[in-house]
Each structure stands twice: as C-alpha cells, then as structure tokens.
Design a protein around this nucleic acid. Structure first.
Ligand code: MN
Ligand code: MN
Ligand code: ZN
Ligand code: ZN
Lengths: 167, 167
DNA sequence: TTCGTCGTGCAACTTTGTTGCATTGCCCGT
DNA sequence: ACGGGCAATGCAACAAAGTTGCACGACGAA
C-alpha cells in the first residue's frame, strides 16, 4: 500500500483516501474534497473559505460541510481553533501526527498559520492555579501582523475578511 | 500613587469611578455598573452574562453594553478573549496592571478564570517561524474540567428512563 | 422487495454581535 | 433663556456563523 505516487495530484488523492479510511471515515467525494483542501492549504481555514474552495470542484452545502468538519474533529483528523474573530477555523494535524500545535493569526489579512507543537512552548508548571483543572487542551495563538502584510503599505483597507482570494 | 482600596468591596464604588476617569472615560452610571460587575466577578464573562448582572440594578440595552465593552477594550481597561464557544468574553486586567494573562476555560460549566500573566509561561523563542510576524498579543487558554465540575456527577441531565415514575 | 442506515440538501432557526437612526440630556457660546 | 452640537443610550432591523428538523435518494442487509 505504500506505492509511490507518480504525481503530486495522485499522491494527494490516494493518500487522503487512505487517511480517511484509517480514521474510520467513509471516503465520499465530498469528504475527500474537504480533506484535500485542508491538506493543500496547510493552515487553519474558516468554514466559509473551505466551502468556497471545495465548491470549485464540487457542489456542496454548508450544512454538510459543517457535519464533515465536526466528524473530522471528532475522529481526530482535524482541529478546531478560534481566531478571535467570529469564525472558527479548521486545520489538519501537520505532518499527520496527532499532536496539538500553536497558531499565528494575522490581524490584518486574517491568515492563520500552523506553528510547532505546544510542547516546549508552554510551561504548564508556571500556571500554578490552572492545575486545579483537568487539562484537556492547550490553545496558544500569536496575534500580530504577518511578514507579507508588514511589507505592504499599512492601508486601512477592508479589515480581515478571512478570505484568501478564493471564489 | 495608584493605591488600590484595601478591600474589594471598597473598590466597588469609589475606585471604579477613579479608574474610569483615569482611563479618560466618562463614568456614567451604566459604565460604572459594567466595570463593577467585571471587578466583582474577577473572571472573563460573555457579554450576555454581563448584561444580566448589570440589569440586576440597572436598566440596560445590549447595544450600549457592547459599546461600553468596546470602549473599555480600546482604552486598555478590559480584555476580550475567545473561549472556543462562540461568545467572546471580557475581563478586567487583574490587579489593574496592564499585563496580558492566560485563561482557564471549563468545558463543562463554561467558567473562564483568569490566570497569571503570559511572561514565564510561553517561550516565544521556541516558536521560530512565528517570529516572522510582528507580535501584538499572545493568547493562552487551558481547556479542561474545573475542580468544581470534577466533583459533581459527570452527567448533569440525562434523559435516562429509569423507573422514576415518568410515563 | 422491504427495510434501515448513511450522506446530502434545503429551509428555518438560534446566537452573537453590528448598523442606522431616534431620543434625551448636557455643555457651551450667544 | 436660547439654540446648536455632541455624547450616551435605546430600539429595530440587520448580518454572520452555525444548528436543527426534515426530506430524499443510494445502497446494502434481511
Ligand atoms: Mn493548525
Ligand atoms: Mn482575564
Ligand atoms: Zn497578514
Ligand atoms: Zn467547570
């Protein structure tokens, strides 16, 4: 089953199907399209953006998309994060390893990049009082202005539409 | 110079007014009620909760509340945080120091407690790639189950049809 | 076939927050 | 006192993101 794919496209399709199956998820065309969008973009996207990208190839409904995203999160395939704006964002586990990771959110363009895992970044011991709680997850988000945006004139343009040139 | 009252109670009328004035905010009755609720609760509250608490004493409209909260955030009096559910939460700077701090969010009861500052908790150097961004804020949230909730039966309300005389 | 489940779609709804505009009270210059 | 701004508040309508209820077609098991 570890055949070398001949093209990146084929690799993407073949391996995402395998990923879904191994997670116990029936690899329907729509689910494949969703996971491929997430894999291709490699960062945390709001559902609206995912829908727009998926719809480039597939007719799709937002309710179904939300259900697919919930399923991915439930099965540990994807993670859901909040960005401080109103929309939650979804990303794959980078490297398909199941480790939680930090994010960087650009307040100007709305891009949310995945960063290394939280291990070594957060010193849980320094949070004394927090340890009164049974920890389930640790969210770390760096808000700021990304390199690309800093290079651009700081035009007070339309603020953060969470859109990335799609649709 | 910035002597805080020795008791939290004393803080509740005389000093909240001073805090507002020093922040350049006209201390209207409604604004005083809002900051007093935040000071009294000492944790991060969603706007809906703040409105309910304020309305115990004061007739108030949600639009005005949102505008007051925006103003507090803009003037650096309060902070806005996301909790993973879709309501943003507001808290005062603990100790009236202007330092950002971490939070603990209970997934069961929804309480969001303020924790110590992020200094000493997050190792920014460990985030290599993130440093491509000009950092504006660092959000750290610990999700889990708080001590109080862990003590309670894990299922608050289950539609189990045990023989309790319900037909 | 008949049945049940699964994946999807659509409309209506809920929650959270925002916009537009009216009203009220206050300060300020006349 | 008068009148014009202006700040603070309120109300209704709106908007974005997500959820619920229900229907429908596909498909496989009985
Ligand atoms: Mn991520
Ligand atoms: Mn706080
Ligand atoms: Zn950017
Ligand atoms: Zn709790």
């Amino acid at each position: 089953m570890d055949e070398l794919p001949t093209t990146p496209e084929a690799a993407n399709h073949a391996s995402t199907e395998t990923v879904l199956k191994r997670a116990g998820i029936d690899p329907t065309p729509l689910r494949l399209a969703v996971i491929q969008v997430l894999a291709r973009e490699g960062r945390a996207l709001p559902a609206g953006d995912i829908l727009a990208l998926v719809q480039d190839q597939h007719r799709a409904n937002k309710v179904t998309l939300y259900r697919i995203l919930d399923l991915f999160v439930e099965k540990g395939l994807a993670r859901r994060h909040s960005s401080g704006d109103r929309a939650l964002r979804y990303c794959l586990e980078p490297g398909s390893a199941g480790r939680p990771h930090c994010h960087a959110y650009c307040l100007r363009c709305g891009r949310m990049e995945c960063l290394p895992g939280v291990e070594g970044v957060v010193d849980m011991a320094a949070l004394g009082p927090a340890l009164a709680m049974e920890v389930v997850a640790v969210e770390v988000r760096i808000d700021g202005v990304c390199a690309a945006c800093r290079r651009k004139p700081s035009v007070p343009e339309t603020p953060v539409d969470a859109g990335s040139g799609n649709s």
